[in-house]
Design a protein around this nucleic acid. Structure first.
Lengths: 197, 197
DNA sequence: CTGCTTAATTAACATAAGTGAATGCGCGGC
DNA sequence: GCCGCGCATTCACTTATGTTAATTAAGCAG
């Protein structure tokens, strides 16, 4: 069993009881893939045929609107799943790009295998439900923070929670994730540097 | 079968194939409840013991922060589920209040019955996974809109999508949901009235 | 290593939303 | 039906972030 599967198994074990034998079978549904920095796992307009479980590296998902503005909506690090769920589920064209921010390793799970796994291993469907629930709860929290915290606070929180991304994700991606312009993030950073946090 | 169950059955049927007989059994897990305007389905600090399926009326969920500020995170109308998912799943104290904005009818599903339903009717667990997925996708969209649209645009979109709430939800709740102050919403509304949308 | 392209920083100015305060209206309780 | 309190509105002023633009720094291809 490779590294990625070990890490995935640990993540599954955090949420559900999965039998070794089931995980063994399930693991046959996944394939390992590598992305170099700057490579795309998904492009806006394509159908998202895979879910990716990230076990090394960092990926960002973002939309580009009709003014050419980038809107980063997720920064995924080790142990996160990433895809365009809407597209993955409906087979409609994706709304998001998903780009590797550094050399990145993932396990891929195709739509077909995802569906199979849900049917064959109820415990997997449960895992996935719990996973989405957590993701949903986190998004609700994120909205609350957007509303009640200043951009400076959100930046400080972000780098406290995911310190590893500071060195791998360009600042204008972070700014976009925070919902501000790169110039504003620059201003915030210089203010932090000057007067302390 | 009462009105609420009919509406719920229709909603289930939109996402999954559920046999009449299974729905019949499942429906025994729910109870109907009425809330008057201003009554609480849940309070911050309590454990959320139920999911509510709203088949008539309007409810809002919101957190109150340590400055006493209200942060509305969901406005639920007919056909929506509402609860504090985090609390419902973990049995930790809830982060949100959930208040009826007008006379409201719901079906309640307790934690125990929810768990039972997931085990007994895999199709229910599937329905619920799909439901949360949609909710997740909608939240992602909401964040994108917060970032790229002005408060005025978000207000116009809100009343276009849920026109019924304009008359039942007080303006300062709508403002909070949009992430702005009541005074700002007032300003925006008067601007719309003056110069057209 | 060099040079080109893109990213980050800084600054001056513009704008949207927040703040605090005064006014008046309306709904609910009696 | 009347009263009072909370809600909505308006206004003057403040503040955070956006915008535009110029400058410097950093990454990458050749």
């Amino acid at each position: 069993m490779n590294d990625g599967l070990k890490i995935l198994q640990d993540h599954l074990a955090l949420k559900v009881d999965i039998k070794q034998i089931d995980f063994q079978k399930f693991s046959n549904y996944t394939v390992t893939k590598h992305f170099n920095k700057g490579e795309y796992f998904l492009r806006q307009g394509q159908a998202a045929r895979y879910l990716a479980f990230l076990f090394k590296g960092v990926m960002c998902s973002y939309a580009i609107d009709n003014k050419g503005e980038k809107h980063v909506i997720q920064i995924a690090v080790e142990g996160h799943w990433i895809s365009d769920l809407f597209s993955f589920l409906t087979r409609e064209p994706a709304n998001y790009y998903i780009e590797a921010m550094e050399s990145t390793e993932v396990l891929l799970l195709s739509q077909e295998n995802f569906d199979r796994a849900c049917v064959e291993f109820p415990v997997f469907e449960r895992y996935f439900r719990l996973l989405i629930q957590s993701a949903f709860i986190n998004l609700q929290r994120r909205i609350t923070h957007i509303y009640k915290d200043s951009a400076k606070d959100r930046y400080l929180r972000l780098i406290a929670e995911k310190p590893e991304i500071v060195h791998s994700v360009p600042q204008h991606y972070l700014a976009s994730f925070l919902g501000i312009k790169p110039q504003s993030l620059s201003r915030i950073r210089s203010e932090i540097a000057r007067s302390g946090r």
